[in-house]
């Protein structure tokens, strides 16, 4: 009896939802990674894009935060069933689930960030993190006085090695004798949220002579930036523009515009230009970049700025090719 009533209530809710859908062209949704939308890093960048879309268009976006593997697929399918489209899936870990959901709901548009699945109704957005890392690596080498720079990665997975490898190539490009110290924080996802370990690694890198440290480590980065600031050394942020976190010692940030990808997906769906397929967001597409603003203006000389921008132009033009660690799981370039 009671369940019947509930069923009716839910059905009514679904009807109400469809009613709102009728007003807007899209009924967008997002499924975050298991880290949650307030991870101060990757997911939060997407969340900011989502927020911006709602602010700009007045269209609300349905958000799902799964807590385990099964809920990812469950969430995607349920959103599709309710008529949500496009659905943005955040993070490479959702690939299998997106693939299954896309097959089950071929009329629903899915946008998968950071990974590729070959389905007809999936838009895959991947980034050339190695290109952006190359730029900040080059800048680090220009800035370094000791000839030693550091890299602090989060979890020890190929994606993070891709950052590290691009960074090293960029530094070598400027100074073939430069020494790059690589450290990973850990081997579990917790490595993306361990600022104290990040600080420790940074201090030991500084002791070993590093004076610029690039963190590609999510929340762990805060510890890196703090330790660098304490020692009067420079640090490089990641994903979002993090220059404001430690003004004066943040040399730059390697920006990865995931929020932009979500925003674009909704926007194109709204105006009817959404297409499936793979979009690779490199320097050329504005998917990755280095950040220069009032917080790090004083640290970057005009020569550095123009040199980095020249390298950027060469990469875009194809004159410099940056090795992608994930193409062969090695950093031989």
């Amino acid at each position: 009896m009671k369940l019947n009533k509930i069923t009716m209530a839910i059905a009514a809710g679904a009807v109400a939802l469809t009613a709102t859908v009728a007003q807007a062209a899209v009924n967008p949704a997002v499924v975050y990674d298991k880290a949650g939308k307030f991870d101060k890093s990757f997911n939060e960048a997407v969340y900011n894009g989502v927020k911006r879309f709602t602010a700009d268009t007045g269209i609300s976006v349905r958000e799902v935060e799964p807590t385990n593997e099964a809920q990812v697929e469950q969430g995607l399918k349920k959103l599709a069933k309710r008529g949500n489209s496009p659905i943005v899936a955040v993070g490479f870990a959702q690939a299998n689930a997106v693939s299954a959901a896309a097959q089950a709901y071929p009329d629903t548009k899915f946008t998968l960030i950071d990974m590729v699945v070959p389905e007809a109704n999936v838009q895959n957005v991947v980034f050339k993190e190695h290109e952006g890392s190359f730029l900040v690596g080059a800048l680090a080498a220009m800035k370094s006085e000791t000839g030693t720079i550091g890299f602090v990665g989060g979890m020890d997975i190929p994606l993070i090695s891709r950052f590290g490898c691009g960074y090293e190539q960029g530094a070598m490009h400027i100074n073939a004798n430069i020494k790059v110290i690589h450290n990973m924080t850990g081997s579990t996802p917790a490595a993306f949220g361990n600022p104290s370990k990040g600080g420790e690694l940074t201090r030991s890198q500084i002791e070993a002579g590093a004076d610029v440290i690039f963190a590609a480590a999510g929340g762990t980065g805060f510890g890196v930036y703090q330790a660098a600031a304490d020692a009067g050394k420079w640090a490089i942020g990641v994903d979002s523009n993090q220059n404001h976190l430690q003004p004066g010692t943040m040399l730059t940030s390697m920006v990865k515009r995931v929020g932009e990808a979500a925003y674009k997906s909704y926007e194109t769906a709204n105006n009817g230009t959404w297409t499936a397929g793979v979009s690779v967001m490199g320097l050329a597409e504005g998917g990755v970049d280095w950040a220069l603003d009032e917080h790090n203006r004083a640290l970057v000389t005009a020569t550095m700025e123009s040199d980095v921008n020249a390298i950027k132009a060469s990469i875009i033009a194809g004159d410099i090719s940056v090795h992608d660690y994930m193409s062969d799981n090695t950093c031989n370039y």
Binding site: N96, D114, I157, L159, S187, M326, N329
Partner: peptide, 22 residues
Amino acid sequence: AASLMVYVMVHVLRETGQMTPQ
């Protein structure tokens, strides 16, 4: 266990070309 599994999945069992350690 977590470390072992990461190692095994990243370095031994991961499908080539796959980003996710699986």
